[in-house]
Amino acid sequence: MATKPELLIDAASLADMERLIAAGANAFVVGESRYGMRLPGEFDLPMIAEAVKLAHLHDVKVYAAVNNVMDNATVDTLPSYIRGLAQAGVDGIIFGDPAVLMVARIEAPGLKLHWNAEMTSTNYATANYWGRRGATRFILARELNMDQVLDAKANTELEVQVQVHGLTNIYHSKRPLVHNYFDHQAKDQPELSDIPIHGKIEDGLYLVETERPDERYPIYEDANGTHIMSSDDLCMIENLHELMEVNIDSFRIEGLLKSIAYNEAVVRAYRAAIDAYYADPEGYEFNEEWLDSIRELQDPSRELSYGFFYKEQVY
């Protein structure tokens, strides 16, 4: 009997973690925005230590997001931060910048390293390159199709993590684009300068492209720049068996920009599917109720989609 895949989600707070553990999550991504990217809540080192304590009580793992595009100033503080993460007892760190790998080798040689360069983590040969330099997990880009995902799993010794649910980032700029735009508008419409527009994640701003009136692309700004997110939510629950058949090691749910109630429902649904499959792989059948429980809470303006899993892209 193969081991069950991990069911991994982010969490905005310790209270959310408790609810998501109860719903069936068995791994978490946490961190702070200075070092990690696009996190739903800020966890400083003492909070990460608390999160680890809580998680380990339930045999649940905690990974720290250290996947930012790093500048010199941040890199200078990395050694003490990574030592702090190791002392907090995290089960691994997520990195994209080779600077993190360099520092972790020295400061925390035993720490597991998950390679995640977002949309540029596209092939197993490159994953294996990072594996030879210490990475233990390959976090796949969301722009790959199913054949490429299966091929990646077949050709690497690293753990393979695949996002199965939620939105994805489609554009990241260091520029404060929302601020810049409203500054520009205020030159013609002085009344706009009275409206406090921060472009923060909780402002709920979204973009609509002229030719695609039904698609809403969330946009927000934080200390790391401007982030634009997909207009649809990936949802692979109907086809999860295709990924379970090849023993993908970790299924990632992206909880960003969703309510805790929604994330709980999503975790419960995927937990049910995973448990049903591993109880009896031969007799496994998809249960429509799992998907219905997600649909009930799904924002009607956001389509549930298969992302790029069954699409052909050209170039």
Binding site: M119, T122, E143, G225, S230, V314
Partner: peptide, 20 residues
């Protein structure tokens, strides 16, 4: 205007792979 490589707008709008 994005960090180079950190943009898949083309993939989402037109199914064209920006990083290839």
């Amino acid at each position: 205007s994005s960090y180079s490589g950190r943009c898949v707008l083309s993939n989402h709008f037109t199914d064209r792979d920006s990083n290839r």
